Amino acid sequence: MRASAKIFWILGVFFLIVAVAYGFVTGRYEPMGIEPVGFPALLALAGLGFMIAMVLTLTIRHNELNSSDDSDAEIAPNAGVQGSFSPYSWAPLWAAIGAALCFLGVAAGWWIFAFGIMFAIFGILSWVLEFSVGQHQH
């Protein structure tokens, strides 16, 4: 986890430097001033990198070392249950179709967005409730 924190600190600094340089160049050479989309987007990327790095750094301080932090560690200490997944589940497909239609609807037409919302709600509810009904019921 220490390596991940270092990577995100580096990414945050990199995007901050790029944002300042981009703002300076567009402010100097563009006739309308600083470009209103790219500069805030780069600042947001820098902020996101710093936020993730801070969370990882604080997590490292409160938890013991992970086996990924030890160069002599084996894979076995991290073995175990990684989650509970339903085999043959169609719910992720419906949720993905809903998300794709929502993104397409924003670009092409709001009526497509409405169909995307319907597919997404069906997919997400199916995904959340799939262990409450059917053959995988508890």
Rank of each mutant, 00 (worst) to 15 (best):
A114Q: 05
M118E: 05
L93K: 01
R2Q: 12
G123W: 06
L129W: 06
S71P: 15
I121K: 02
V13F: 09
I52M: 10
Y22V: 05
F113A: 05
H138E: 11
F131R: 12
E74Y: 10
I10F: 12
L43G: 11
F115K: 04
Q137F: 10
A108T: 11
F131K: 14
A96C: 15
L56Y: 01
Y88T: 10
F119K: 06
I60Q: 02
S4W: 04
K6E: 08
N63S: 11
G123A: 08
G23S: 05
C102V: 15
I124F: 14
A46W: 03
L65P: 01
L65Y: 04
A73E: 07
L65T: 07
V25P: 01
S126R: 15
Y29N: 04
L58D: 04
L58G: 04
A96E: 08
I124P: 07
F85V: 14
K6T: 12
V25G: 06
V106F: 13
Q82L: 09
L129I: 04
F50P: 04
E30I: 01
F8R: 07
F39W: 07
L42Y: 13
M32T: 12
I34F: 13
T57S: 12
G12S: 09
V55D: 04
T59L: 11
G12V: 01
T59D: 09
A99D: 03
A3G: 11
S4G: 15
V81I: 13
L58V: 11
V106G: 01
W94S: 10
A114M: 14
L42I: 00
I7T: 15
A46G: 03
H136W: 12
I117V: 15
T59N: 06
F39S: 02
H62D: 03
E130C: 02
G47H: 05
S71G: 05
E74P: 00
V55C: 07
P31M: 11
G134F: 03
G12M: 10
I17E: 02
M32L: 12
L65G: 01
F85I: 12
A53I: 02
W127M: 04
I52P: 13
P36G: 02
R28K: 14
A76I: 09
A79Y: 08
E30L: 07
I117T: 09
I75L: 10
I34E: 08
V13M: 01
A44V: 10
S67Q: 07
L56I: 00
V106S: 00
G105N: 05
A120P: 06
E74A: 13
A44C: 07
R61W: 01
S84Y: 15
L125W: 07
A120H: 11
I112A: 01
V133H: 13
G109K: 08
G38W: 05
H62G: 08
H136E: 08
S126G: 15
R28V: 10
N66A: 14
M32Q: 13
S4T: 12
M118K: 06
I124H: 05
V13C: 06
G116L: 09
N78Q: 07
A76C: 03
A108Q: 11
W111Y: 15
F103A: 14
F14P: 04
G116R: 09
K6D: 07
G123V: 06
W94P: 02
E130I: 12
A21H: 02
I10A: 14
A3D: 12
I7D: 02
T57M: 00
V81G: 02
L58Q: 12
L58T: 03
A41D: 05
F113N: 01
N66P: 00
I34H: 03
G80V: 05
A46M: 04
S84G: 07
T57K: 02
